[in-house]
Design a protein around this nucleic acid. Structure first.
Lengths: 218, 218
DNA sequence: AATTGTGAAATTGTTCACAGCA
DNA sequence: TGCTGTGAACAATTTCACAATT
């Protein structure tokens, strides 16, 4: 199964496995079967095995997967076995919530810098980090070896700001503005659209969809 | 094409079409072709036509789709042509950011009630809404005809609280805790996992994935 | 006996290509 | 002519089922 193209869904499921394995580790399980892992994230055992087999043979026939080891393997695959230096642009509602979002830090996403274009916010403090102005962006990103930028600015200014960020050489951006941004082909952009899931719920309620849906193919 | 099962991806793409149509309306377009609509959300024209054809024949051959009308049709399909009464539980970082998140209000999601189990937060005010205690939950949800609950509580208490919410008769829940929650089959649950997209970016960077990926197949 | 790893089959989702209509 | 609507072709993903292994 070496070298089949890895799909987006597979990668997202790795995040789920990682989460489940973190829980299993806390509960002192040494090994876990594909069935148990599947149950915990509402997937099928076959899918778990197929997903994992893309990356190697991590299990033992008859026994299952070693929890701690598999968790480390997946962390390595996802690239979260290290610390990423992150800058966050836009310290409004969402932005300031994200600064304190524990799950980011727990997975090695270290928000080191905050930026805002609002003069009144520059110099203010969030969780011990001083908000910088946008004119300082390029130098600060370089000096702090930032590899990842989170954008939490209004939709109206998001494209201008993302252009600026791209010009600074950043190759990975997480966008919270509910708008489609254009970036060059060599930049990774993901957009978190929080209204979309509410719309999905709304759709489900009015159309009385077949039940038990939680997240993408996931 | 009547009565093919509508996939999750199709529904998510409807959200995208809705967003694009909102922009087109603002730009005073009367009609739009499947090609233009596809371009705006980075999809293919065939996909746009197929998606829309699930729900009816909204376009005119040779001309395209009427922007205003199509937007209304999609709003109707998504169930956002009305106001939904929403309660938000957990007024921490994420929770208080969501209260002020304009996009929710704009799409008819009216956050009417706030709850928290922290005594110090009860009685405090967010955007003019007073935070209530959890003991009041059932009565308040009923009296205010709440149909949708947003959960922004810590992972550790999320399952207990979601059980409580389900017992109050709520059938649609948006969960922001990074954990898999169990709910009965007749309850719609969606989980917004914000770390997942960061993990995807991290994976992309370390694996130097083929570029230009923005959200699910979406 | 239990459980992985994996080709093959089944299913689901996407794109093609063109007839049909304005 | 231009563009939709859609069946048919194609591609991707998931599930099945079983040999291999402990």
């Amino acid at each position: 199964m070496r070298d089949r193209r890895i799909s987006e869904s597979t990668i997202h499921r790795l995040s789920h496995y990682y989460r489940a394995l973190t829980a299993l580790e806390r509960e002192h399980f040494d090994t876990v079967s594909s069935r148990e892992l599947a149950n915990r994230e509402e997937l099928t055992p076959a899918q778990v095995r197929k997903d994992l087999s893309f990356f190697g043979s991590f299990g033992t026939r008859g026994l299952g997967y070693p929890v701690k080891e598999l968790k480390e393997k997946i962390a390595r695959i996802l690239g979260i076995d290290r610390v990423w230096n992150v800058a966050l642009i836009g310290v409004g509602n969402i932005g300031s919530a994200l600064v304190s979002y524990k799950e980011f830090a727990r997975q090695g996403f270290n928000i080191k810098l905050l930026f805002d274009s609002d003069q009144r916010k520059i110099g203010s403090n969030h969780k011990g980090i001083t908000v910088l102005g946008m004119d300082d962006l390029e130098r600060q990103l370089n000096e702090n070896k930032i590899e990842l930028v989170i954008l939490a600015v209004p939709a109206s200014s998001a494209q201008v700001i993302v252009d600026h960020v791209v010009n600074c050489g950043i190759k990975a951006i997480l966008n919270f503005a509910p708008i489609k941004l254009a970036v060059p082909d060599d930049v990774f952009l993901r957009t978190e659209n929080m209204a979309m899931e509410l719309e999905y719920l709304s759709f489900s309620l009015v159309n009385n969809l077949p039940r038990r849906s939680d997240r993408k193919k996931t």
